[in-house]
Amino acid sequence: MLEIKHLSAGYEGEQTLHDINLTMQPGEILCIVGESGSGKSSLIRAITGYKGLQVTEGSICFGGQELMRGKRACANGVMGREIGLIPQNPEGSFNPIRTFEKQFREMFASHGMSMEEAQIEGAFETVGLQDYKRILKSRPYEMSGGMNQRIAIAAAMLLSPKLLICDEATSALDVTTAQLVMDELLQMRRDLGTGILMVTHNLGIAKHMADRIAIMYQGELVEIGPCQDVIDHPQHAYTKQLLESAPRMSA
């Protein structure tokens, strides 16, 4: 479904991705694990065609269609409906002073769908938000970061895209809320066959969600493999270090 070949990219004067190769099957959950500065955010920006990032080499295909146009990917045709994005910080994806209701209506309209309140209510409940009517009437600036994040996740879910990209979507959330979101993402994959590309710094989340895990370090994809293989038999030294460092529940 998603195929990235020999991708190198960076910002002005600084290369942040080196020769990345990866493919995703439909309905697969791939977790990309890395720490800050590993290039995992750059990878997402490359796929979604972020303006500041320049792709110097390589190709990005989605559903057999090449997304690269010159220096950056042009995902206009597929973003939203086919590829959904849950950003790390949702403030950027909503207009702070317009009500959620208007923004949701617009979002549905632009993808040729009608807005059904029952659906919204359901989506809100799964991310732990009660009283959807009051939320729809409010505006993003009135909400806390965690609330906005959950609303952004609900919005992405409502569009039921083929590929959902989550950029540290749970790292700003409390552990119990994060759990709701993780459960819902797994549910989406089960019910709708949504493929999920999940970027996280938390190996624990990857272990419990991923079909395959990819480890990124200093702009390179150092290891990729089935979840259990990577956790039980890490190959790369950095993966081993990460596994040793990650805290485990122990008495």
């Binding site: 552990v175 119990t176 624990g204 419990h208 956790i231 990650a246 805290p247």
Partner: peptide, 12 residues
Amino acid sequence: KKLIASSRMQSL
């Protein structure tokens, strides 16, 4: 219980 179960799911 909820807190610990969630934490288990988010750690190795």
